[in-house]
Amino acid sequence: MSGASAGAPMIVARAVREGRATMTPWRALVDIAVIAERTLIGYTRIPEALFFSSVQPVMFVVLFRYVFGGAIATKAPGGYVNFLMPGIFVQTVAFGAVATSIGLAEDLQKGIIERFRSLPMARSGVLAGRTIADLCRNIVVVAIITGVGYAVGFRVLTNVGGYFAGILLLLLFAYALSWGFAVIGLSAPNSETAQVMSFPLLFPLTFASNAFVPVQFMPGWLRGFATYQPVSQTVAAVRALMLGGVTADHVVQTVIWCFSILVVLAPLAVWRYRTRA
């Protein structure tokens, strides 16, 4: 096992080496891109995982559209399916954020994060790269769900601009959630636990919301939470952008939620990443 020499280690002069240790914005971007690429390649190598992660939202579409839909009264223009789809969009990206936490917990378990931490990388590189990869994955999933929605009768009632504005807002929310779930992934002892730890957060957020049923049918004590929590605000904003109605208020609320989540949880995630023993 000698063959081509690996080169004398001192070839890379000390000054050059120490120069490489200096972080620049460009290097940070390269780190983020390399990690994002690595994560996305990983997703394509396990197509089953990608396939089944879109099967679940499709099943929710079918379940609510055809099983529960008839029993849920809404005043949404175009009927329940139009009310439902924005909810499905948001629920899908919210459940998708679990992938961020599972992925990071797996990386920790496998020891690759230890290696990353021993490299002269940007401190936020691993987390920013993964969350961006998860954003790309979300774009694919959202496209699939849009297709399924159209197949079961969903129609955008505003215009193409409204649809894309809604999707953009949705992706912002997904990105913010990804950082939140990164904190869980970096705190869990293993990937199974990361998954179990995520659900007690996800279920109240997605089901005690306006995603599937209008909040006015909920008891008073729940209605306050169900109206103002981030999933509901995002659903309301996406609904307004795609179906019409009062928009600005919900959009502003959603953007505030997203930035609040990012401002608080992104630094927390980076701190967890750096200091986890």
Binding site: E18, K110, G111, S118, P120
Partner: peptide
């Protein structure tokens, strides 16, 4: 970090 290489106890590579 710019001066070291590390091969850990558990092969820390990306399986995929």
């Amino acid at each position: 970090r710019a001066s070291i290489g590390l091969a850990g106890q558990y092969a820390a590579v990306d399986e995929n």
